[in-house]
Design a protein around this nucleic acid. Structure first.
Lengths: 183, 183
DNA sequence: ACGGGCATGTAAGCGGTTACATGATTCG
DNA sequence: CGAATCATGTAACCGCTTACATGCCCGT
């Protein structure tokens, strides 16, 4: 149940509406923890009922601004210091899962899939560069340094994905046809 | 629904039982796609009903060996070539999510959490080195090269996590106390 | 005035987790 | 012969996804 803590974390930075939070997930955070808008609204209600956030203001079009409470701050700090077990440290990253099985493909598909993957992750790495360039330099608040750190990890991951795809194109020149039951 | 494809992928390598598949997830694959044994048994039944795998043999203690069928091979190849949208390319990696919010912590907790994270991921990287050393050198089958590629990406990720934690220890020397509502 | 983005929700269903449950075989 | 591991399942619950639904405000 990390969604609630992601919301608390974002609200620790500044008060925001469900719509604002949705945008933050869509544009960047969602790459590390994907969430849909309806899930956010549901969770905001639950967090409010538990006193971890509170309604601090209203805006146009029924806009509702939430702010984190002291109890909420306590809860996210608890979560941040909580030791993670092996299960919580696992990731769920389908592209990497797929990479582990590409050897099953036949020559033609293998080459085109790997080429597409390499291309995709080179672009993603470039996109992260642009994004990092738009982040303020000085840490007006401490959150900027944390966000840069996350972006750097993301860049390492995307770069490694591109490199791995490129390397496999040479290492896996054939096979695939031999896979499966010799029925 | 990637579980079914992960199972098909492992069975494309060699026929196996649900218990064997569970072990594969526990020891390595689970870091990229965590799964519980009961989920595996449930999915195996479904895959068999759909004709994507078949019972190929029995063993001691009610052990049931499954093998992939031609239909199953077709299905995993379809999955491997299927274009992934942005949502499917997202990962769900709680430690990285946490890293983005550590700035909320106060000095003391911040330092100890970051030190623990760095230490943990240095160990994980070392563990991956050992694991890679145990993998056969020559690709008896093509799956070895794919597995090595996944391990290399994993190492890049773990290394980047350790580096990011280390860098943040210097970049985030204080703050935290100022976060939250000035209630 | 109207189209597009802002803004918030509800309901059904599914994939995944937690807890429960049982029995066979091997090794010391 | 008892403990550890092998080996497979069921049931309840919950978080998340998909689909549906509504209305307001701003810019052109």
């Amino acid at each position: 149940m990390s969604l609630r803590h992601a919301l608390l974390g974002l609200l620790a930075e500044a008060p925001m509406s469900g719509y604002d939070l949705t945008k933050r997930f869509e544009h960047s955070l969602g790459r590390v923890w994907p969430v849909r808008h309806n899930q956010i609204y549901t969770e905001l209600k639950a967090l409010q009922d538990e006193g971890l956030i509170e309604l601090s203001d209203y805006g146009p079009r029924g806009r509702k601004i939430y702010a984190i409470t002291q109890a909420g701050l306590g809860e996210i700090r608890r979560w941040l210091t909580e030791p993670l077990d092996a299960a919580a440290r696992s990731m769920r990253f389908e592209p990497l899962l797929r990479l582990g099985f590409v050897w099953i493909l036949e020559e033609n598909d293998l080459q085109s899939v790997l080429a597409a993957e390499e291309d995709h992750y080179r672009q993603q790495a470039a996109w992260l560069d642009e994004m990092m360039a738009t982040l303020p330099d000085l840490d007006s608040d401490g959150s900027i340094a944390s966000r840069r750190a996350v972006a750097r990890v993301g860049k390492a991951l995307y770069g490694a994905m591109a490199e791995a795809a490129a390397a496999l194109r040479d290492t896996l020149p054939s096979d695939g046809g031999r896979a499966g039951p010799e029925a």
